[in-house]
Design a protein around this nucleic acid. Structure first.
Lengths: 116, 116
DNA sequence: AAGTAAGTTTGATGTGCGTCAAACAATAGA
DNA sequence: TCTATTGTTTGACGCACATCAAACTTACTT
């Protein structure tokens, strides 16, 4: 229904304002192999459905994945839209670039070819 | 004794090789307010004596500071030389730039004006 | 040699985290 | 209206971590 894609619909889950994003929380959120992997996934795919083998976290319980996504969202890394019974997650690239210029790019570049 | 400064003397404490520095460990090491503060200190002062009010961690026990410095060293962030009964710590700028180009600069820039 | 100073190490403690399982909520489809 | 699906929430468990205190090591000083 509606259209084929999911542009702007859905309800945004709670997330910190740009100016409230704290570096130490961002780094803490990324100091975990699973979440660092998820960062890479969200950086590749524009936005992405959650809890699935497609995220490369099929070995984890869905509640665990949900937990990780909450931490990333509350750290200000990701933005989640709830549409229907799906969640669409995307990186807050613009916000992160505003708050910490160059950091995200450096992180993603550092992540290339990194084993987790 | 010897000369006035401490250029190359001292014994290097154990630290990972450049190619063994893992991003996730670096980020985990920096996902803590105290260690993020220490990063800023080591970035300013070329190298620096440890365990003191001068580090801005006077509220912590010396063993706690030692613990944090060990974690940063084992993550590959810092290099520690033991000379006499002092430790001299410095950022592994070149190594970090080799391993993760642009990351350290972005981190330090993001750290400017950041409250911890 | 004795004492002092700088750090590390070990042990103990409380807290937070990653994980799973089960229960719950909300929505889509029959 | 049932039923299945998607994801969150809560509780429990084990493990890691930040912290302090005390003991230990090493080295400078007198």
């Amino acid at each position: 229904m509606v259209k084929g894609a999911h542009e702007d619909e859905g309800v945004l889950l709670e997330q910190p304002d740009v100016e409230d994003i704290q570096l130490v929380k961002v780094l803490h959120a990324l100091g975990d192999p699973t979440r660092l992997h998820l960062l890479r996934v969200y950086a590749s795919g524009e936005q992405c459905d959650c809890s699935s083998e497609r995220l490369g976290v099929g070995h984890l319980h869905k509640s665990t994945v949900s937990h990780h996504m909450r931490i990333m969202r509350e750290a200000g890394l990701t933005s989640t839209r709830s549409v229907g019974r799906n969640r669409y997650v995307q990186l807050r690239r613009a916000d992160l670039d505003t708050r910490f210029p160059g950091l995200l790019d450096a992180l993603l570049k550092s992540l290339e070819g990194e084993e987790l």
